[in-house]
Design a protein around this nucleic acid. Structure first.
Lengths: 211, 211
DNA sequence: AAAGGAAGCCTTGAATGCAAAAAGACGCCT
DNA sequence: AGGCGTCTTTTTGCATTCAAGGCTTCCTTT
């Protein structure tokens, strides 16, 4: 059995096969995925409630993120990721901390490599921190945010030199969590998000080169 | 034309016509609302993605909130409402501030009255602060949280004396926002949420009487 | 009497068909 | 030639139907 329509459409959006602003027609998707319109419709509506899709008149288009929305998203993200770091420092199990440590260690090998692979590793790292917070509402809300981030142009890891800096920031976060230092973990993660936003702005402004 | 299935089911959950834990059967809902199973199905799936419904085997039940989840929810809520207060102090227009001030003034008249009316007024007040943040992601996420709160037993305004205290807290929040004092607004709203949680815990423990 | 199995019913998942509404294209009139 | 109106086509929304899966209940067997 193959994946359901919801997953297929979501993956297609995340893979940028459907671009922000692009219109999604039920019958086309149904044919493309070899199912009827019914499951496609359901998938589209679920994605709409998650703000991945937006209504434009009667039809649905892939949501777009303008500059303002980007700033708004990062404002919320900073707060929630900071909370996640604080809670992870408080609630993470020793096993979870070791997983975080090994993730950071493994990421050394990826430095300078494929930006897409770096981005995936980064996603896994942050996801692991979310889970370590042991707060399912927080996990859910951060999931939503990260979904919306998939609508952005490209990963900030494509920026020249960003990967090494980010890895250092990751190390600082994990160290703070391992030390059970809530405030330091909170601050380290906020700084990390802030830097990532800054990088993205520089790329957008054309100041930073992409590899 | 009447409201769509999604709104009807959501309202029924919020009105506690469907209780947490209760199983929702598509065909029953379809008959009750006089539509076919198709729009009911779509509505149920949307509510499931918002965590208002939960899968239990193959069928859907209204989500339940245990004590742990309550604490997790309030942890996230404190952070997001605090951010909303900070952003409202920064971004609210003069008109929005005047609306907040008049809301607080009008709420005086409700003191000691119907807990349900107090709760509605409270919801409107907080919603107005969310909107004054001028951050649509934040509004969206807080909407989600407030939805989930509808799954809780009853409003904390039913607690003896809570309404007067809460109104005072509301006044402090609005004053800080009007003064454009971000930190004071942030702190005032966090304190307010913290007190509300505390009240709820006291009620749950049976320490506080309900009116 | 209890446990295991089979049969039937209930419920969900998916496809198809139909109607209505919106978007677009074409022509007509000014 | 341009604008307005109508007709056609596309696309969505909803209903109905069919199939598959699970659950319950009852019967049988040990």
């Amino acid at each position: 059995m193959q994946k359901d329509a919801y997953t297929l459409i979501l993956e297609a959006i995340e893979a940028r096969q459907f671009r922000p602003g692009e219109r999604l027609v039920e019958s086309e998707l149904a044919e493309r995925f070899g199912v009827s319109r019914t499951p496609v419709r359901e998938a589209l509506q679920r994605l709409e409630t998650q703000s991945m899709l937006k209504r434009d008149g009667r039809s649905l288009i892939v949501a777009t993120l303008d500059h303002n929305q980007l700033a708004e998203l990062y404002a919320v993200r900073t707060e929630l990721e900071g909370l996640a770091a604080r809670l992870a420092a408080r609630h993470a199990t020793e096993e979870e901390i070791r997983v975080l440590q090994s993730m950071v260690a493994d990421d050394q090998a990826l430095l300078g490599g494929d930006p897409a692979a770096l981005s995936r590793a980064n996603k896994r790292f942050h996801k692991q921190i979310h889970l370590a917070s042991h707060n399912r509402f927080l996990v859910q809300q951060l999931d939503l945010l990260h979904r919306s981030m998939a609508l952005m142009a490209q990963t900030s890891f494509a920026a020249e030199g960003r990967d090494g800096v980010a890895l250092g920031e990751h190390e600082a976060i994990v160290a703070a969590i391992a030390a059970r230092d809530e405030n330091r973990a909170w601050q380290a993660l906020r700084t990390h998000i802030s830097r990532a936003f800054e990088t993205r702005l520089r790329v957008e402004a054309g100041e930073l080169k992409l590899r």
